[in-house]
């Protein structure tokens, strides 16, 4: 009950923020933080609920960004067919959902391929996948413009009563867009982990042989989780493309995956609120440190921060606080639910 009230309060604060905080720069930072939080929510589905550490998650994010950008800009590319493939610019929302679908398809492919192997192998396959994607984005200049980046990507637009089709260009509009997509993704994941699929995934994470023996179709569920996770990451990438309005091959960099992992792990993997809390901390911290410390010192602090969190808060911030609250107020103690 309290948690729900806190959640609603948080949502109300977040939704009205651009009205009482009139600093466009801060709103812009919250927007880009929000995009990464969505990506972290998708990673949490894999890392937190299935226990599979995907270190190529930036690949799905980047594929979403490139797909949406390319569909909305249009492209023509010669792939050895008799005539070059020509795609005319599509409306931005079609591009957006195209990105979700394409990312999901790649998720299926990687899920099928990677779940033949587990543990360290899975990690390395996902890293390699992201790196190959980066090389393609860097070198397939006809399609992706390579290091020259895709530029002038159109913004997303909505039907606004009284204004017709309005392009979302101001910082506040983009903020609300990201918030709306974020809320949808949050509840989608919440719904999933509470469903039969979610229970299967958790059973799998906790004891795979046992889950198998009682008839849980392991590979099937893992692939479904990967597809959904990749699709949400793709949506985050598409938001990125239409808000930042420039996409370059560096979106595939390993460091972005690492940023997502840090957000999930510090917040608390396997908790719904974890990626949001971790995302806010690690999205806003660079701005707080900006000016006080050079970027490399910030990153040194991050690196040491990860180590300290693993050592002292191995389950993350959200579970630690939940424990603390339960200790303080015995009335709130209740049996640990299946979804931590």
């Amino acid at each position: 009950m309290r948690a729900r009230f806190g959640g609603l309060l948080f949502l109300a604060l977040a939704a009205t923020l651009p009205l009482w905080l009139r600093d466009p720069y801060f709103v812009a930072i919250l927007t880009s933080t929000g995009i990464f939080i969505i990506a972290a929510i998708s990673l949490n589905l894999l890392l937190g609920f299935t226990g599979q550490l995907s270190l190529g998650h930036a690949a799905f994010f980047g594929i979403g960004a490139y797909t949406s950008a390319l569909l909305s800009l249009g492209f023509d590319v010669d792939i050895g067919l008799p005539s070059p493939v020509v795609v005319d610019p599509k409306p931005v929302w079609i591009a957006f959902f195209g990105a979700v679908v394409v990312s999901g398809l790649f998720g299926w492919l990687i899920g099928k391929l990677a779940f033949r192997v587990r543990g360290a192998y899975f990690v390395i396959v996902t890293i390699s996948f992201a790196e190959v994607m980066r090389m393609v984005a860097l070198n397939w200049v006809d399609l992706t413009e390579g290091p020259m980046a895709l530029n002038n990507i159109p913004p997303l637009s909505v039907l606004w009563p009284g204004h017709g089709l309005t392009a979302l260009v101001t910082k506040s509009q983009q903020y609300w867009l990201v918030l709306a997509v974020g809320v949808v993704c949050y509840f989608l994941v919440a719904r999933m982990v509470r469903s039969r699929l979610g229970r299967a995934l958790i059973a799998l994470r906790e004891n795979e042989p046992l889950a198998r023996s009682v008839g849980v179709r392991v590979t099937h569920y893992l692939v479904v989780a990967t597809v959904v996770s990749a699709a949400i990451a793709g949506a985050a990438g598409a938001l990125y493309a239409h808000c930042v309005r420039i996409v370059d091959p560096d979106v595939f960099l390993f460091i972005y995956t690492v940023t997502m992992v840090i957000m999930v792990v510090t917040g608390g993997k396997g908790t719904l609120a974890g990626p949001v809390v971790g995302g806010l901390i690690f999205g806003l911290m660079p701005q707080a440190l900006r000016g006080t410390a050079p970027p490399e010192v910030q990153w040194i602090i991050y690196g040491i921060g990860i180590i300290l969190i693993v050592f002292f808060l191995p389950r993350g911030i959200v579970p630690a606080f939940a424990d603390l609250a339960r200790l303080r107020m015995p009335a709130l103690r209740k049996p640990a639910s299946l979804v931590r």
Binding site: V261, W299, F311
Partner: peptide, 21 residues
């Protein structure tokens, strides 16, 4: 193995940026 991997990622980031610094 995953927990240890995270620590190594942290060490990697700190070392690389230490070199840059």
């Amino acid at each position: 193995i995953d927990t240890v991997m995270l620590v190594m990622i942290g060490a990697w980031i700190a070392l690389q940026n230490g070199e840059q610094f």
